[in-house]
């Protein structure tokens, strides 16, 4: 790793100026994941722009209609915020499923939402990748997972994204233009290499806005250990007004997957079928592919049982 400068802007405006004047930069949030990428030479920025001193990105504010969470709020902080705990227990549950208590002291909401996609064959050291020879996302034209050259299926593993999908969250992005507000769903591409959208023009995810409304939520994460592990499958679900539902799935496709509908219009088998079709799951996780696919059905069964109560 050979970084020429490590910059610590005090405001979003400063950060955008730095981004404009430093080619090949990297925005750095909590850094718990991205440091591994640096060490493994998966990314080679010339400049690091560390956002941790920007106070405006660490605010949590609420009114009667919504809560806004600064993107640099740590996962630990949102877990301990009374407003979030009261109105969005799903967010707390999702946040507490990420990393470990120590990691959550540093890892941020924005960092998790924009966590890089993962693949067993990509998230390896330089020497390992050299030995394996080719990876669509790295070098060469052959995917080691599918043994084809068509498409990268690296998977999104943001647990918060699954929760935010079903809460219909909005995100605010500042950039060199006017900035923009969009649904979190529009932040993601179904693409294992180019997996985020709308972050061009030096875009910085600054806020997440959660509309406060009633509904019952459900969350489950598949992993071998009860802590630390990245998701092998995350399902977050919400049932609200007149039996409408939103289900966010992640860890099983190149982007988080959203399934919406009304429980009077579709049955469990229909929802499962939609989930299976929407998820482009391949064998790129430590858990076997067949099992992860099976668990989509099993978890949806469990969610279904929970809403019958």
């Amino acid at each position: 790793m050979s970084v020429k400068s490590y910059l610590k802007p005090q405001s979003v405006t400063d950060a955008l100026i730095m981004a404009k004047t430093h080619a090949n930069y990297l925005y750095f949030a909590g850094g718990t994941d991205i440091q591994v990428y640096l060490k493994q030479q998966l990314i080679k920025p010339d400049h690091i722009i560390d956002l941790s001193d920007i106070g405006e990105l660490q605010n949590i504010a609420s009114n009667d209609e919504n809560i806004s969470i600064g993107s640099m709020t740590t996962l630990d902080a949102i877990s301990k915020n009374n407003s979030i705990y009261k109105d969005f227990p799903l967010i707390v549950e999702a946040a507490q499923s990420i990393g470990t208590p120590v990691i959550r002291k540093t890892a941020t909401v924005g960092g998790n939402i924009l966590v890089n996609n993962r693949c067993n064959f990509y998230n390896q050291s330089f020497g390992w990748r050299q030995a394996i020879g080719s990876c669509l996302r790295d070098v060469g034209d052959l995917c080691q997972v599918t043994k084809t050259s068509g498409k990268c299926f690296s998977r999104n593993v943001s647990d918060l994204a699954a929760a935010l999908f079903c809460l219909d969250a909005k995100v605010i992005i500042s950039n060199q233009n006017e900035g923009l507000e969009l649904s979190i769903v529009d932040l993601y591409n179904q693409d294992g290499i180019d997996f985020h959208k709308h972050l061009d023009h030096d875009g910085i995810l600054t806020k997440i806005i959660l509309p406060i409304d009633a509904g019952s939520t459900w969350f489950k994460k598949l992993r071998i250990r009860n802590t630390l592990d990245f998701s092998s499958l995350t399902i977050a679900a919400k049932v609200y007004d007149n039996r409408n539902f939103r289900i966010g799935l992640n860890g099983v496709s190149m982007s988080p997957v959203l399934i919406t509908g009304n429980l009077d219009m579709i049955d469990l088998e229909g929802i499962k079928s939609l989930a299976r079709k929407s998820c482009k799951t391949v064998d790129n996780d430590m858990m076997p592919l067949k099992y992860r696919r099976e668990m989509i059905d099993v978890y949806l069964d469990q969610w279904w049982v929970s809403i019958q109560k």
């Binding site: 470990t100 067993n120 390992w128 030995a131 009860n226 802590t227 630390l228 592990d229 990245f230 430590m286």
Partner: peptide
Amino acid sequence: QFLNSNFIDYKIPSTLD
């Protein structure tokens, strides 16, 4: 070569396990 030569993917039980 090992696919999981790190403590994320080599699953030593945590305190919670």
